[in-house]
Simulated assay, not measured.
Amino acid sequence: MSLFGWLRAAKPGLDAAQQQRLAQLPKPAALGDGPLRSQRWVVVDLETSGLNLNRDQVLSIGAVVIEDGAVDFSQLFERTLHRADTKLSPSVLIHGLGPSAIAAGSDPVEALLDFMAFVGDSPLLAFHAPFDQHMLCRALKDSLGYRLAHTFLDVADIAPLLCPEAHIREAGLDDWIHHFNLQVGERHHASADALATAELMLILLSRARQQQIDTPQALQARLSQWKRRKQAPSF
């Protein structure tokens, strides 16, 4: 085998139990064609050591579940990951994850296996999802040799799609929280931000049904169409 072939085949060093857990993870399911209420969504937020997509690392993962038209508080996920050699950026002043919290964190392999077991075959939602998706994909590949293939939708796109009257297309999560007068007790913490995003998404799912977007597949199709129109050159 060539050197490059060996590098492509290299896998992280998982023990037998971890390899078994990895092999047993469910395959991602396609978005359902049933009612929006019947879809299980996993809303995720990450805290990272910085904003560099190729250098910084995931420090914590927070996630909540939307199911049957509500946040299911019996399904919550939160982990801080142990990172021995991570240099923290000034973002630590925002998310508050200092060296002691990170030193006491979970083994990244175990934490990421736990998270993917929590996700199961469900689609993922995040606010400004491309960043979270990229960072999560990198973490899973580096720690598990796992390729994330789950559907990942961006709540930051869904909001202006369904609420064009708001005229805040490039808004952040705080802008939408203010727009809908949501009562959010905490921010800039992975699990708290995931919950805030989930509460926003509940409003958006109600708006979708009002606009005759009745299935997850229809929501994805409408979102794809909206993004193509937005990216199309104007003459």
Rank of each mutant, 00 (worst) to 15 (best):
residue 107 D to N: 15
residue 85 D to K: 15
residue 1 M to R: 13
residue 178 H to G: 11
residue 98 G to P: 02
residue 188 H to M: 06
residue 232 A to I: 02
residue 74 S to W: 10
residue 181 N to Y: 12
residue 98 G to C: 08
residue 180 F to N: 05
residue 59 L to G: 08
residue 223 L to Y: 03
residue 54 N to C: 00
residue 51 L to S: 11
residue 21 R to L: 07
residue 210 Q to K: 06
residue 38 S to H: 13
residue 119 V to M: 05
residue 17 A to M: 07
residue 162 L to H: 05
residue 182 L to A: 13
residue 176 W to D: 05
residue 206 S to Y: 00
residue 204 L to V: 04
residue 60 S to L: 03
residue 16 A to W: 12
residue 51 L to F: 11
residue 61 I to E: 04
residue 74 S to C: 00
residue 184 V to I: 15
residue 72 D to R: 13
residue 42 V to Q: 05
residue 88 L to R: 11
residue 60 S to P: 02
residue 60 S to W: 04
residue 146 Y to G: 12
residue 59 L to F: 06
residue 169 R to Y: 14
residue 11 K to Q: 15
residue 196 A to M: 04
residue 124 L to N: 00
residue 232 A to N: 07
residue 122 S to H: 12
residue 84 A to I: 12
residue 34 G to E: 03
residue 158 I to L: 08
residue 55 R to I: 10
residue 122 S to N: 12
residue 224 S to K: 09
residue 77 F to P: 01
residue 146 Y to D: 10
residue 133 Q to K: 13
residue 132 D to I: 00
residue 217 Q to Y: 00
residue 221 A to G: 00
residue 34 G to D: 10
residue 221 A to W: 00
residue 216 P to D: 10
residue 145 G to S: 11
residue 88 L to A: 10
residue 110 E to W: 01
residue 103 A to P: 11
residue 45 D to L: 01
residue 63 A to V: 04
residue 21 R to Y: 08
residue 102 I to L: 14
residue 37 R to F: 01
residue 40 R to P: 01
residue 95 H to R: 13
residue 185 G to A: 09
residue 136 L to A: 04
residue 216 P to N: 07
residue 164 P to D: 03
residue 207 R to S: 02
residue 148 L to I: 02
residue 60 S to I: 04
residue 219 L to I: 02
residue 191 S to E: 12
residue 141 K to R: 15
residue 96 G to D: 02
residue 174 D to Q: 15
residue 44 V to R: 07
residue 123 P to N: 05
residue 157 D to A: 12
residue 11 K to P: 09
residue 13 G to P: 11
residue 101 A to Q: 15
residue 49 S to Q: 07
residue 72 D to A: 12
residue 156 A to L: 03
residue 119 V to F: 10
residue 10 A to T: 10
residue 115 F to P: 03
residue 192 A to G: 08
residue 210 Q to Y: 05
residue 90 P to F: 05
residue 19 Q to T: 04
residue 153 L to S: 01
residue 233 P to L: 14
residue 68 D to Y: 04
residue 120 G to F: 11
residue 40 R to K: 09
residue 98 G to M: 09
residue 28 P to A: 11
residue 145 G to L: 09
residue 217 Q to A: 13
residue 152 F to R: 08
residue 28 P to H: 09
residue 144 L to I: 05
residue 173 L to G: 06
residue 77 F to G: 06
residue 40 R to A: 05
residue 57 Q to E: 13
residue 96 G to R: 10
residue 46 L to H: 01
residue 214 D to R: 10
residue 45 D to V: 00
residue 15 D to F: 15
residue 117 A to S: 06
